[in-house]
Design a binder for these strands. Structure first.
Lengths: 219, 219
DNA sequence: AATAATTTTTAGGTTTGTCTAAATTAAATT
DNA sequence: AATTTAATTTAGACAAACCTAAAAATTATT
């Protein structure tokens, strides 16, 4: 099956919204896609006819197994291209999203297979988000926020849940990026702040709010 | 200015047809694009309004300066992607066209700039066709068919004008590809056939017809 | 030069994806 | 429980890009 760019964008957005709430509403999807609720309803009918989702009028909707597989394929393409743009073309990781948004719709399976191999089968994209395999299987990467890491443990940053410009500025200031290895020295019970140490830099303290948004995995 | 995928396909096809005849007809364009003449007329009106071509009813049409620039940009993107697909992803050069056809419509200038740099500013695509630069300037590569090369000269294959499956099979048989270096030993006046020698392989004779279709430049 | 054949354009219709405005259903409030 | 508010859907239009069939213009043939 082949889907239009528009259909793919809807499928992908539904998939993303489902990660948070398990059933998606017309308004939230319209908002996500910067379109009008009436347009969403129109497209839902189409996707339902194509048997990609469960949909009951006025009741919300969610992707079924087929729809999820399609979504994961789009996510796979998106994240592989992001990885390519950062590691090969030298883009900053916070600037690749829009371009990957276009590239993800080029749907040659052979292209994606070869790209995957060329990139050496990366497990996560530059933001630390896992890249589904050909069959839609996500690599399991146990990730924990810094707030939950025991003292004295060394970990590797693998994703950042809040990607606002403010957060990115902060990360740049602390010199933290995906792949950065750091040691969690001590948690301060009073305000939940955490002292961390990055390789040869001086130790520094991050607030609980920041600690909760930086995810890491054991080394 | 930004153009739709459809508009870009029309512009590119007009450009290609202009290379041969200098004014393009509705039917030939319809044929090139696998569409109907009526659809072509519709699009021509649009492109005329956007001031990309000279068009007189019933009289044929051609891209103006602006249109040509747009076309060259699309050609540039197409050829850079083809080069990428072959040299980085390991595709066969005769299989990349369709995929590049999709990739060429991703129109981020920054993407193409970085891709160009990553590929080391190639002058020609895998078929030996020149890649226009950012401003639409084509690199001048003096190319001559093997039939015209003087005896005893060593040259590098840079393009093949006939790209039929039969021709490609022949090239594969002789072990000739873009970039292959070969020595032109001797022209046989009787039938125009030519003896060539490729690096460590035994010398072989190609027919005049083949010699006329393989273009080379001096080393 | 008149007619036949071909090419191109116009007229009007279809599909996809969007929209606004109105109607309907569900949820929240009193 | 009745009513107000909010969310969703329907109805009807619109633009882009395509189509078929008919009309108009050009080119070729006799």
């Amino acid at each position: 099956m082949n889907y239009s760019i528009s259909e793919e964008n809807y499928i992908k957005s539904i998939y993303h919204l489902q990660q948070q709430a398990d059933t998606v509403t017309t308004n939230s999807l319209a908002n996500e896609l910067q379109t009008k609720p009436a347009s969403v309803t129109d497209m839902l009918k189409k996707l339902q006819v194509k048997k990609l989702l469960e949909y009951e009028k006025y009741r919300g909707f969610r992707l079924n197994a087929t729809g999820t597989k399609v979504a994961l394929n789009i996510v796979r393409r998106h994240r592989l291209w992001e990885y390519f743009l950062v590691t090969k073309l030298g883009f900053d990781w916070d600037k690749v999203h829009a371009i990957a948004e276009d590239l993800e719709h080029v749907s040659s399976t052979e292209l994606i297979q070869k790209l995957d191999g060329y990139l050496n089968f990366p497990q996560t994209d530059p933001h630390g988000d896992p890249i589904p395999d050909m069959h839609g299987k996500m690599p399991l990467i146990k990730q924990v926020s810094i707030a939950e890491v025991p003292d004295k443990k060394t970990v590797v940053v693998c994703s950042v849940s809040n990607q606002s410009p403010e957060m990115l500025a902060l990360l740049k200031h602390y010199n933290i990026a995906i792949g950065t290895s750091l040691k969690v020295n001590k948690h301060f019970g009073f305000d939940g702040s955490v002292e961390i140490k990055i390789s040869k830099q001086a130790a520094c303290v991050i607030s609980e709010q920041v600690a909760k948004n930086i995810f890491v995995h054991h080394d």
